[in-house]
């Protein structure tokens, strides 16, 4: 690990200001992803701003009947909150499908959104990667890219976003609250937070330099069924090969793209009276495999159809 300096933030706006003013600064919350990457020297921050003790650990009702989840609420605390469990079960199911209990106790809601891809080539400093070293090339293209993207990928990057939680947030139409270095706050729809790779896969979110996520806001729960499904190589403590979140009439797919993938084509098809199979086909018409991950297109279609038909979740 490279040496760094450290400060414990005393306010969210102060943390954002410090991040903008200090070269090489990164926010540190739970640290479960950042410290792992720092040990591998894939992340080399010169300065850490510890936001873990900011007063952002509350879950509170919003006036319109939704919930605001503070950015440093742990994944475990968010999943266990009685209001989340009863009104947003898809979020609890997605959270407890991710990582291990020890990691969920430490990892935060904000950090979960900001975690980086688990693409094996991103993790291997001996291989070129456009995320680590812009312009170096993508080793996953033509490599052993079994887990990689089938939607929204580019010639520069075929990685996927690893979060389960974010897939549920996409289906719930959540938004993210932030504070910028100058103190300005704004609300970003979850669908606009993460970026597809395009030519610049190292630019992963729409956040400005120094901008800090302070909360996730859930709108009132939608009418209808909520469900999370995850397919992976082992039953627990493994990243997804494909996942799906259903919330009322909304559908989001996970482990298919560099962002949680809101399935708007399928939603529109269903609203127009399409069958589950037709809806799945509408969404996956643009899906492309890059070799060993082509099976994910078939897998995605089958899981989407089964979920829409109301098949058993386990």
């Amino acid at each position: 690990m490279r040496p760094f300096t450290y400060e414990r933030a005393e306010s969210a706006s102060g943390a954002a200001k410090s991040a903008a003013e200090t070269p090489g600064a990164r926010f540190l919350a739970g640290g479960t992803n950042l410290l792992d990457l720092m040990k591998l020297e894939i992340e080399r921050p010169a300065h850490l701003i510890d936001v873990g003790r900011l007063p952002l650990a509350r879950i509170e009702e919003t006036p319109d009947g939704g919930l605001r989840i503070g950015a440093v609420v742990s994944n475990s605390a968010a999943a266990s909150d009685r209001r989340v469990r009863t009104r947003y079960p898809v979020l609890t199911h997605a959270l407890v499908a991710g990582a291990s209990p020890q990691l969920r106790n430490k990892a935060t809601v904000g950090g979960n959104l900001m975690q980086r891809t688990r693409c094996a080539y991103f993790y291997d400093p001996a291989k070129p990667c456009n995320k680590r070293d812009p312009g170096a090339g993508c080793s996953a293209l033509g490599g052993d890219a079994r887990g990689n993207a089938i939607l929204g990928a580019s010639e520069a990057c075929v990685a996927v976003h690893p979060s389960d939680m974010a897939v549920a947030l996409a289906a719930l139409d959540a938004a993210v609250e932030t504070v910028a270095p100058a103190g300005r706050t704004r609300t970003i729809p979850i669908d606009a937070l993460h970026r597809l790779p395009g030519e610049t896969p190292h630019v992963e979110t729409s956040l400005e330099p120094g901008e800090l996520v302070t909360a996730v806001v859930l709108p009132p729960p939608p009418e209808g069924r909520q469900e999370y499904r995850k397919v992976r190589d082992r039953a627990s403590y493994a990243g997804g090969l494909f996942s799906l979140a259903l919330a009322g009439g909304r559908l989001a797919l996970g482990a298919v793209a560099l962002k949680p993938w809101r399935a708007t084509q399928a939603e529109a098809a269903l609203a127009a009276g399409a069958t589950p199979a037709e809806a799945a086909d509408a969404e996956l018409a643009a899906a492309r495999g890059t070799g060993r991950n082509a099976f994910k297109i078939t897998l995605a279609r089958r899981v989407v159809v089964d979920a829409l038909e109301g098949g058993p979740t386990r």
């Binding site: 450290y6 540190l28 640290g31 479960t32 410290l35 510890d50 020890q102 430490k106």
Partner: peptide, 19 residues
């Protein structure tokens, strides 16, 4: 490396002591 911090289990390897 699992230990209890304020009664909650975490991986001690993925946490800085100063935190």
């Amino acid at each position: 490396c699992t230990v209890l911090v304020d009664g909650v289990r975490i991986n001690a390897c993925l946490s800085l002591a100063v935190m």
